[in-house]
């Protein structure tokens, strides 16, 4: 279906003043409402297997492992890269969202960078510290988690309920309000079940 939407979006690009190029909002966002779980990636209609994510020692984060999606609480994941300038822009809103609602959910940021080769763990932690990260920081070295939940490009965020259903996801730099609203959708889905 999405494929058709994209092409349909492109097909509607007709009017271009003076030629040149035109930006089209042709790519559907992955913002799938809680009222339409069928529209998510299919895998989410039944609880997917949780993926084990290693967490690192950093401000607000400790070394260990979490399972995503978490079975016992709503999971919020921010996907970022230290190479990604908009991901830096995203950090203050993440910090605010974490302050406001982080204690109600499993709240973490994850990078799929090759930590250990393209960037050392120290460099990652320095980046984290410099941009005031103060919550759980995880690694996705095989990009399995990222592949499952990335909603387009980076940064990207997802809120998943305890049944493993994606209740909200979006890419690009988001405001704290948008992040909190997304997380609340997952929390409300919980309350509803």
């Amino acid at each position: 279906m999405r494929r058709r939407d994209v092409l349909a979006g492109l097909a509607s690009v007709g009017v271009v003043g003076g030629g040149g190029v035109l930006a089209v909002r042709g790519v559907p966002s992955f913002e799938t409402g809680s009222d339409d779980p069928e529209a998510t990636d299919g895998a989410e209609t039944t609880a997917p297997d949780p993926i084990a994510i290693e967490t690192v020692e950093a401000p607000g984060s400790e070394a260990g492992e979490v399972r995503i999606p978490a079975p016992e609480r709503v999971t919020f994941v921010d996907f970022f890269g230290t190479w990604c300038p908009p991901c830096i822009e995203q950090m203050p809103a993440l910090a605010e969202a974490n302050d406001r609602i982080g204690s109600d959910v499993l709240f973490l940021s994850v990078t799929n960078e090759a930590v250990g080769s393209s960037v050392t763990e120290d460099e990652l932690v320095d980046w984290w510290d410099e941009h005031d990260g103060d919550w759980l920081l995880g690694l996705d070295p095989t990009a399995e988690l990222t592949s499952r939940y990335l909603a387009g490009g980076y940064p990207s965020a997802v809120a998943i309920d305890t049944d493993g259903r994606v209740q909200w996801s979006d890419s690009g730099v988001k405001t704290a309000d948008e992040l909190v609203a997304g997380i609340e959708r997952a929390l409300e889905a919980e309350a509803g079940t």
Binding site: V6, V13, A23, V24, G153, P155
Partner: peptide
């Protein structure tokens, strides 16, 4: 926003 634009020539 990443991906907010797919871009096409007229």
């Amino acid at each position: 926003t990443c991906l907010q634009t797919i871009v096409a020539s007229s």
